[in-house]
Design a binder for these strands. Structure first.
Lengths: 216, 216
DNA sequence: GTCTATACTTGGATAGAC
DNA sequence: GTCTATCCAAGTATAGAC
């Protein structure tokens, strides 16, 4: 159900559910449930119900599979993000959307996959550059969203969108990790709550920012 | 409680450089250089020049050693932090101190140890609560610092120090991970640069905040 | 009481079977 | 062309030597 439905580009027949996709799905699932350290070939294979060695045949190594898994979940998630964020025009709406997205992500575990691999790249520096490539679209996305929200506002000069975008990505990442630490979401929820209280105030102070729903 | 006294409370004589301390130091060093995944008993032992099994004799398990290592580096670091931050009274000074501290930490690798273990706790949930205990002092420290900086300011009502503290810790953590990803500090440096540009402005807008050294 | 040799388990990866 | 049985390295932890 969650499949991109493209033709199998690697060995495999082009019908039904290519093994390759099954492996990627199993890897995502395993990363969510067991983390990076628990995402061994054997565990992934157990999750997906196939033989461990299939991973090496199709991907060459665990790292390559995990990177592919991140790429897959990342692009799937990007679609949802875009859809939700495009709806939001005012700053309050944007904050609302961000909170909703974050909650969804936390529950579905998509951010976790990203956080796991970013954290893991400390131990495996050779993965760094490739993960970096997969993070970049997120920074770009954040920057574009911020640019739209601050368009015409004097704040854009004080807080350049690209720097803000970097900070937002870092903040999301840090929150994800801290949240999983004690399985307590209250800290993050409080932050979003605060942000949604503050957003209208800030919005009122920024005459240049788009305020679609404002009956002027 | 992890450890407190200088006297070896576990087996060991109380003279010179107890094995226990050598092991902790080796663990810290290994976490910095090889990350969590690379911090195996064998690797730590190789770093410290002792037999791997000593770890199990003195600490019982790798996890327990790693937690002890985090506790040690954390309390060492907390001292430096307090010393530097107590100097700062104005907001600009505080930002300056934060940037300096962050740079030191990045170079010495202390934050990395924290980030490694926090990330690792995703894979080993049983470590979560204990790491959480070790993170708490940092949130408290951040909160107290923020409280002092915002004392008497109306901003404190809009941005409660405890929520801000949580966000700051998350941001530091996220920045640390992103920085190590591509070994590029420019993003973070830009942020601190921006913060130090903004701090005086913000400070001027907040009449309640303490502004000790303002001779102009 | 302190430390080492060694057992046992799990993991990544390949050589060869269908 | 697709998948499985199997090998070897690395990991944790204990049973026993100094």
């Amino acid at each position: 159900m969650v499949k991109a439905g493209r033709k199998s580009r690697a060995p495999g027949r082009s019908g039904a559910a290519p093994t390759r996709d099954r492996i990627v799905d199993a890897a995502i699932e395993t990363l969510k449930s067991h983390g990076f350290a628990g995402a061994s070939a054997r565990e992934i294979a157990r999750t997906g119900g196939f033989h461990p060695a299939l991973i090496f045949y199709h991907f060459g190594s665990i790292s390559d599979l995990l990177l592919a898994a991140l790429g897959e979940t990342s692009s799937r998630r990007m679609e949802s993000y875009r859809a939700e964020v495009e709806q939001a025009r005012t700053l309050p709406e944007l904050v609302e959307a961000a909170a909703r997205i974050y909650r969804e992500d936390l529950e579905s575990g998509h951010i976790k996959v990203l956080a796991e691999l970013i954290a893991a790249s400390s131990s495996f520096p050779e993965m760094g550059p490739r993960i970096s490539e997969l993070v970049e679209p997120w920074e770009t996305f954040a920057r574009e969203t911020i640019e739209r929200a601050l368009a015409g506002s004097p704040l854009a000069a004080l807080l350049p969108p690209d720097e803000l975008a970097h900070a937002v990505v870092a903040l999301y990442l840090g929150m994800e990790l801290l949240t999983h630490l004690d399985r307590d979401r209250s800290g993050v929820q409080a932050l979003f709550q605060r942000a949604s209280t503050l957003a209208p105030v800030l919005s009122a102070l920024l005459p240049g920012a788009p305020e679609r729903g404002d009956p002027r």
